[in-house]
């Protein structure tokens, strides 16, 4: 597989996803409406937290919240990214791709890029709604650009993760359960809607290892009047590294997916081996989901 072919594949597969998106007006509308609901509901519900002594997020909760909601949209949107893989498995499209010389990496990158386009759209909607509701940001265009970058990197991480999980779980209900179980704690163990200075100390401690929090800190930091660029780029850097690692792992998940399609072939020369445990036959391989969860948590908590 040449690098050029992989790039071509990524292009045509991303275009395919965007076509599908354009053809689902309801989905498009949901993507525009949902951020407004979140922003306005959370904004009203927690309006008074800026008055709590010790709140370090400025004087306007809407401004503070907007930066958190941007990341929330990116997190939840991308946590669902794998559902399209499962639809394709159910419709036989996945087998068709895997039987063709389509680059596995391109298959992951295309869905992740598509999700990133959605994230950019949603972020712009959130910022627009917040601005109309009276929020004013100090960071200017540069701040918004860095906020978008942080949201996109966060999308890369979780969309790749979701795709990898889809390849292993192979069932919609399982994938959704896994996504929810992971996304909600990540959201609350962060400063997205509440300054961690007001939370118990352990929350702040855990949040430092939370990729979602890295994106929130970077995005919010960039939108300050005088950003601490060292912190911002530091957070973006580890987020980018995690995004690369996650994309690689998701592409590896294709191996496990394909290997699981042909059990019992161990005795044949050149037969698939258990990918996680070297030189072990598939029938004696630990359950794929166990291995995967193990390695992912290792990556998240690095």
């Amino acid at each position: 597989m040449s690098a050029l072919a992989a790039v071509t594949h990524t292009g045509v597969l991303t275009a395919r996803q965007l076509r599908a998106f354009r053809r689902m007006p309801v989905f498009l509308a949901m993507n525009v409406v949902q951020p407004r609901i979140c922003l306005l509901l959370f904004g009203q519900l927690f309006k008074s937290v800026v008055d709590i002594p010790g709140f370090g997020g400025g004087t306007d909760y809407l401004v503070f919240l907007t930066q958190g909601i941007v990341m929330m949209m990116a997190l939840f949107g991308s946590a669902w990214a794998g559902t399209s893989y499962i639809q394709e498995m159910d419709r036989g499209v996945m087998d068709r791709f895997l039987a063709s010389p389509t680059s596995r990496g391109a298959m992951i990158v295309a869905t992740v890029l598509y999700q990133a386009v959605l994230t950019v759209l949603q972020t712009l909607v959130v910022l627009g709604v917040a601005w109309l509701a009276g929020a004013r940001f100090d960071g200017g265009w540069r701040g918004i650009a860095v906020l978008l970058l942080a949201a996109v990197l966060l999308t890369f991480v979780f969309a790749a993760f979701s795709n990898g999980m889809a390849l292993l779980a192979k069932a919609q209900t399982a994938l959704i359960a896994i996504s929810q179980i992971i996304a909600f704690p990540l959201m609350f163990l962060s400063s997205a809607i509440m300054d961690t200075a007001l939370s118990p100390a352990w929350v702040g401690g855990v949040a430092r290892f939370n990729p979602f929090e890295w994106a929130v800190v970077a995005g919010r930091g960039a939108m300050q009047a005088a950003p601490d660029w060292g912190t911002v780029w530091g957070q973006l850097g580890i987020l980018a590294a995690l995004a690369v690692a996650m994309t690689w792992l998701a592409a590896r998940a294709f191996r496990i997916y394909q290997w699981a399609l042909q059990p019992g072939a161990c005795g044949l020369p050149g037969a698939p081996r258990c990918p996680a445990v070297r030189n072990r036959c598939p029938d004696r391989c630990p359950a794929a989901a166990d291995m995967w969860t193990g390695s992912v948590f290792a990556a998240v908590n690095m």
């Binding site: 594949h9 045509v12 597969l13 599908a20 063709s100 010389p101």
Partner: peptide, 17 residues
């Protein structure tokens, strides 16, 4: 969510045409 022609074009591009 693709048309017939789009399916064929995609297949061709993925095959390196």
């Amino acid at each position: 969510m693709d048309t017939g022609r789009e399916n064929l074009l995609l297949a061709g591009r993925l095959q390196g045409m």
